[in-house]
């Protein structure tokens, strides 16, 4: 980056806007989830704070901030402090490599609408998504509570079930765009989104990132019916809030990734690019909420079975077929 003050100002504005937008979106996703779940279950949901309950997220934040910050006496104090940050920050960082709109030109300065255009954006995502699980594992272990420990162990079991198929489902995307850079991947889908050529990879990726979100039907580390709240049972106040907001940032980020890898990123007819990107991302968020209202929870041996015996061989097979077809057409 050059030291041009206009460029620096534009970058700072972009960073602030992204940070603010992602956090606000995460807060309103919680609200949207409660309203949509209520609607699915034929009840009203939160509708008292402000018009249509729209100020509910603000009330939630105030409530979390004014709660007592408890650290269990037997907890491993520093790891207990570290875990919520380990869960929330990697999710936010992944967002920095997602292009959320076409580059803007303001007063002769081009502003790419992503925070960091890494040439290894895809690998950056895979690396950070593996780090995020440490938040669950460390939080579960540090709490020194049996429910939390079981939740943390399940978090690890879950990671080794879905991560392989998630990584393998992205190999065809790399083959077709011949780049790890998110910008190049989006550019390669200018005429046709990859979902058209790679429906199987898309489905494998979709199932894997649902597991990555740790939500129903894969919310085993949390499993409120069996483990109280799983890995964050012992967390209260704003520390719980960080875990919680991390989960919703994760949904937004993974929705954005699904859009970038398979749905053509910000490309789309008529509407402005940022709007298209938002529609695709929020469609994924809605799907997550809808699934929560519809599906039961899997057992974790069932999840391992799904990951290892169905998704992984399918993904490998898909790579072979893609390689063969690309070879025939070139």
């Amino acid at each position: 980056m050059t030291a041009d003050p206009v460029d620096i100002a534009l970058f700072a504005a972009k960073l602030g806007a992204v940070f603010f937008a992602v956090l606000t979106l995460a807060a309103y996703l919680v609200f949207a989830e409660r309203r949509i779940l209520a609607w699915i279950q034929d009840r009203k949901g939160p509708n008292r704070v402000g018009p249509f309950g729209l100020l509910q997220p603000l009330a939630d934040v105030i409530k979390l901030l004014t709660k007592e910050d408890l650290v269990p006496a037997a907890a491993d104090r520093w790891l207990f402090y570290l875990a919520p940050a380990m869960a929330a920050i990697p999710a936010l960082l992944i967002f920095s490599v997602i292009p959320f709109g076409a580059p803007l030109t303001i007063a002769g300065h081009t502003l790419p609408l992503l925070i960091a255009d890494l040439n290894v954006g895809l690998l950056f995502f895979l690396a950070l998504s593996s780090i995020a699980v440490y938040g669950v594992a460390i939080g579960g272990w540090a709490s020194n509570s049996k429910y939390s420990l079981l939740g943390g162990i399940r978090g690890l079991a879950q990671l080794i079930s879905y991560e392989l198929s998630m990584g393998l489902a992205l190999v065809p995307v790399v083959m077709m765009s011949r780049s790890f850079s998110m910008t190049d991947i989006v550019t390669a889908q200018q005429s046709m989104p990859f979902i058209v050529y790679q429906p199987l990879a898309f489905i494998i990726f979709l199932i894997s990132i649902t597991a990555e979100c740790r939500r129903i039907p894969f919310d085993l580390p949390e499993a409120e019916g069996e483990l109280v709240a799983g890995f964050h049972t012992e967390y209260s106040g704003m520390r719980f809030g960080l875990f919680f907001v991390g989960e919703y940032i994760n949904i937004i980020v993974l929705g954005g990734l699904a859009a970038t890898f398979f749905l053509g990123g910000w490309h789309g007819p008529l509407l402005p690019p940022v709007i298209w990107f938002s529609i695709k991302t929020l469609a994924f968020a809605f799907l997550m909420i809808w699934l929560r209202g519809t599906l039961p929870r899997l057992r974790y041996d069932q999840l391992m079975h799904l990951g290892w015996k169905i998704l992984t061989p399918l993904a490998l097979f898909n790579i072979l077929v893609t390689a063969w077809l690309l070879f025939l057409t070139s």
Binding site: L15, L92, S96, I115, N119
Partner: peptide
């Protein structure tokens, strides 16, 4: 290229 990410880490922390 990683500088913006470092800035985001600082903002997040």
């Amino acid at each position: 290229a990683y500088l913006p990410i470092l800035l985001l880490v600082i903002v997040a922390i």
